[in-house]
């Protein structure tokens, strides 16, 4: 089994950030805020966040804020919950949440809660449990969870629970590991994990591990490094992570590295990207791979960052 190519991954991430003119970068331009979160969190987990100019990042993040209080995926793009969470998480990494008018951001998020407790992603009304997680996670990081009706938010999430113990996008939607993470994360942050049948969901989740050691996101699908995060963090939050073979998963993730140029891909020998690089490294952190900072399974931020926010200094 190879080792984690820390230096090469750091180099890769810093390079992606600079490369703005190739086709991939242009296609991804609208979600640069997510990219910033993936890249910077990876750097922090690898212990290399100090290579980044804090002021430059913070001022760019703030340029993406819309007058509504929400953040867009890039300068000039519309605000959406997806990028609002990433913005807050990036600021949290640098201990810079204080540059925000947290009331304004929180009001934007709280304003997107619907009567049934669900959340829309933006003013156009698409509803999804991903947005429930984002709203709850973000408000909790800003210490403003009291701005929404938590009880209703939890009730809506529970209404998306399925026969297999997992969760879908909306009531009746099929369980999907990414969606399971969102719902388990939101229930964790609101102290509502008792709504989950941990054994049933745990079995469904642990059966996501396929022969190669990798994890898939739904039954009878191919494995993908990103599920190392979605499935693992969910298993950890419900204390069932011992139900999978961790060593085989570590090997699978390491096999997805580009050992020459850095970066991690979805499966061995596929093209790398910053999204899978983050999920690979975060997955290894959840697997207690030596030398990595620990990451919190619910807030998706390094444990020291989360502890700083909730326990002070």
């Amino acid at each position: 089994m190879g080792e984690l190519e820390v230096e090469k991954h750091v180099k890769y991430i810093l390079l992606v950030e600079k490369r703005k003119d190739d086709f991939e970068s242009v296609v991804m331009e609208h979600l640069r805020m997510n990219g910033a979160y993936w890249g910077l969190t990876t750097l922090d987990l690898l212990g290399k966040l100090e290579t980044v100019d804090t002021e430059e990042v913070v001022s760019w993040v703030m340029k993406c804020q819309h007058e509504s209080g929400g953040f867009g995926g890039n300068v000039g793009h519309d605000p959406h919950l997806l990028y609002t969470l990433s913005s807050v998480q990036v600021l949290a990494l640098f201990d810079k949440i204080n540059v925000l008018d947290t009331d304004r951001v929180s009001n934007y998020i709280a304003g997107l809660q619907n009567d049934d407790g669900s959340f829309s992603g933006d003013m156009w009304g698409e509803v999804d449990t991903r947005f429930s997680y984002i709203a709850i996670c973000c408000l909790s990081l800003l210490h403003h969870l009291d701005k929404i009706n938590v009880e209703k938010a939890v009730k809506y999430i529970v209404s998306c629970k399925n026969l297999d113990g997992g969760f879908g996008c909306t009531p009746g939607g099929e369980s999907h590991a990414g969606q399971v993470f969102c719902c388990v994360g939101a229930l964790s942050i609101t102290g509502s994990l008792h709504h989950i049948d941990k054994d049933l969901l745990g079995w469904w989740l642990c059966e996501r591990q396929v022969k190669s050691g990798g994890l898939n996101g739904r039954p009878e699908k191919l494995p993908d490094v990103c599920y190392s995060w979605w499935v693992l963090s969910s298993l950890i939050m419900i204390d069932r992570v011992h139900w999978i073979d961790k060593e085989k998963l570590v090997k699978f993730i390491l096999d997805c590295q580009d050992k020459e140029n850095g970066g991690i891909s979805d499966r061995p020998d596929d093209a790398v990207d910053v999204y899978h690089t983050y999920f690979g490294v975060a997955g290894l952190s959840l697997l207690e791979y030596p030398g990595l900072k620990a990451i919190d399974p619910a807030y998706a931020l390094p444990v020291d960052v989360v502890n700083r926010i909730f326990f002070g200094r």
């Binding site: 969870l145 942050i189 102290g191 994990l193 939050m237 619910a298 909730f310």
Partner: peptide, 11 residues
Amino acid sequence: RRYLCSSPLSH
């Protein structure tokens, strides 16, 4: 067990 016990993290 971080989220299965009572704490400020889970309010």
